[in-house]
Design a protein around this nucleic acid. Sequence first.
RNA 1: GCGCCCGUAGCUCAGCUGGAUAGAGCAACGGACUUCUAAUCCGUAGGUCGCACGUUCGAAUCGUGCCGGGCGCACCA
Length: 552
Amino acid sequence: MKKEVKIKIVEVLKREGLFYPEIEDKIKVETPKEESYGDLATNVAFLLTKHLKQKPQDIALNLKTILEKEPIFSKVEVVNGFINLFLSENFYHQVVKKAVLEKDRFGESLDKNRGKINIEYVSANPTGPLHLGHGRGAVVGNILSNMYSYIGYKVEREFYINDAGNQIKKLGQSVYARFRQIEEPDYPFPEDGYHGEYIKDIAKEIYHYEREKILSMLSEEDAIDFCAEYAKNYLLDKIKEDLKLINVEFDIWTSEKHLYEHGKVEAALNFLNSKGLIYEKDGALWLKTSLYGDEKDRVIKKSDGSYTYFAADIAYHYDKYERGYDFIINVWGADHHGYFPRLKAAITAFGVSENWINVVFIQLVKLFKDGQEVKMSKRSGDFITLRELVEEVGKDAVVYFFASKDPDTHLNFDIDVALAKSNENPVYYVQYAHARISSVFREAKEKFGFDPESDFEADLSLLTQEEEKSIMKFLSTLPEDIEEATLKNQPHKITNLTYELASRLHKYYYQHKFLIENDENLLKARLYLLKAVRNALRTLFKLMGITPVERM
RNA sequence: GCGCCCGUAGCUCAGCUGGAUAGAGCAACGGACUUCUAAUCCGUAGGUCGCACGUUCGAAUCGUGCCGGGCGCACCA
């Protein structure tokens, strides 16, 4: 709606000879904080002060008399230079109808050809279970994917498996050592190996099923490779199970190892070499990333002959580019922010626009219980896994809290709040809104013999209460609010919007009755509006991956 | 030392491509259940928007410099 109003304003300015191209992008049409300031407000008068050499208030007053003649506005007011616009009732009724008809896809773009993008998230090394940071990345990546899909992009969700480097080798050595220790308790464990209990579990499993095979292998190296491969697959399965706990899935799993096996790394580096961007120094090969904005050049092939992680990553991103995405988003832990300039440099060296690659950084998750921070250290293996947290507080709470803050700010996860069945807990607040509507619908069917689930018509002009208008107003801008949040990569806005809608519903519920005995028209009108709210809530829940509960 | 993020009410945070009196929630205090679920609602109180300059009609928002916290500055991934 904001868009349409802005177009209308520009149209009016042009007609009146008051249009200056440079102000177009600055014209804002937004929902004012105060209800009394109208349905929408615009700042155009301020933007014209320089051109017209008049005070904002005077310009606004002139524009008011012109805008008043437009039928989409029922009223135009000027306060302190702001032009406050009131929209006609009919407009809001259309929005409510739309929400009822579109079910749990309210406001979703019908045009699904806006473009094709790729969102890569989690991409945890398959060397252990998922921890909370991965969980937050999973939730953020998943919601972002849902959001882009909502606004009309074809989204491919991708998990990059780092299965080629030292970490996997270490994993193999660790598992192999635990395997050997079953028969020889003194068998040495690698110094910087993985200490978690899960390593022993994997070793036991291998011992149970593959003991003969391993012992008959002549070389220890082959045995370690076998263990690495076995453990990797075992842990990837675990990771997939953990992700399923929070409804996160992927379309594409790309293996770093396969990039090497299919010659992608060689090919990418050959191309860069042909452009004269690679040179040798100190026995290693370097890429001239400093030519493309990086602070210094980077090693791509170490002096021991092996490639760096960076080399594979270049090939990986070039591969993504060749797949033809309009742009890509990587969801990374904030500890990787220093890595971004170099990857961006490498990508631009291929001639790719730097706007093509985007990164959303995820800051740390700190866990609190009983008012105390729960300290976690990966080295000691002493950390809470995503699975443990989900088992303790439930899927919906984990998803909601991970989603509720700007990804690029630290997140304090308070277990006590997530567990609280009270108004302290926003998850219950939003779910209760949905459950309340479901409850009203059940009652309507049982006691009034009217099923709100059926298709029915209603006279929406009966919806004149303040709380009703407040809800309609909210619904009228919801799809645009979602779109705006999407394009800014701000998944946490979804939780804000959901909370806001729930709040308006709760207020409405408290002030007014829906199941009215002697006024069928009003009954239907109100149930119709409730249905619109329910659908909007379901749409938002679906974006987040939260269950819309029917009763609580 | 350099780079990135953060600093807003007692707590957790919105708001940040400049806009109206800086907003929520929790906690505190005071109210509301012969009603479709009180897991709710209504009200009160609570602020040098880290500090200082600057940019302009206007700064929490932009710029510069400080202060405080986190992260990163590998031939690790």
